[in-house]
Simulated scan of single mutants.
Amino acid sequence: MDDCVFCRIVRGELPASKVYEDEHTLAFLNIMAGSPGHTLVIAKPHRENIYTLEDELAEAVMRTTTRVAKAVRQAAGCEGVTLFQANEVAGGQTVFHFHLHVLPRTPGDSLPGVWPATAPTRTEMDEMAERLRAAL
């Protein structure tokens, strides 16, 4: 995509503080960082979201994310990382090129933790599990 900001970074048209690159993926620091070391891992070919990733590319992105998470933990001196990945507007996606956020975390930081939990019944969970198995 000609106007996609991440495609433009891959092509070298826009600057990025690169952390890692291979044939399928690119990792670089987020210009809108939640904390120092906040890194984005992207698929190099344009894929809008997780639904459009083929298995080989999904595997490559996860391999890179694992390597980057280990590096972020060491280099940022954090005590943990949060991985975040959003799809479609309703899911919170703002850049429509598949990417994962690797966020360094420390106890008491100002980043959001987890979402409010609900406790569905076993019947509700079993019914949803059945629907998910059918969709797979």
Rank of each mutant, 00 (worst) to 15 (best):
P107C: 05
L83A: 02
R122M: 14
V114I: 15
T65P: 03
V68N: 03
M62Q: 10
I42H: 03
A60G: 02
G92K: 02
D22E: 05
P107M: 09
S35Q: 11
N30C: 10
D22T: 01
A119F: 14
G12E: 06
G34A: 13
A71G: 11
T64N: 03
I50K: 00
K70W: 08
P120C: 11
P15G: 04
L100C: 13
H46G: 02
A119D: 15
F98E: 03
M125G: 11
I31V: 10
M128V: 09
V114G: 12
R11E: 07
V10D: 03
R8T: 07
A71K: 06
V61A: 05
V68D: 01
H38N: 00
A86Q: 02
T82S: 15
R131M: 11
N49G: 10
F96D: 05
L132W: 11
T106H: 14
Q74M: 08
S35F: 08
P120L: 06
Q74E: 14
H101Q: 01
E13C: 00
T64I: 01
L136P: 00
Q93A: 10
D109W: 04
N87R: 02
Y51W: 13
P116T: 13
V72L: 01
T25K: 01
M125E: 15
I9Q: 05
E21G: 05
D109L: 08
E88T: 13
P120H: 11
A71F: 07
T94L: 12
D3V: 11
A43K: 01
K44A: 03
R133Y: 07
G80R: 06
K70L: 10
G80N: 07
G12A: 04
E130A: 12
A60D: 07
W115L: 15
H99I: 03
L132G: 00
R131S: 10
H24E: 13
A129Q: 09
A60K: 04
A135N: 08
P104L: 12
A134R: 15
L103V: 14
G113L: 14
C4K: 03
D2S: 13
T64W: 04
D55S: 15
R8N: 10
D55E: 15
Q93H: 07
E124K: 06
A119I: 12
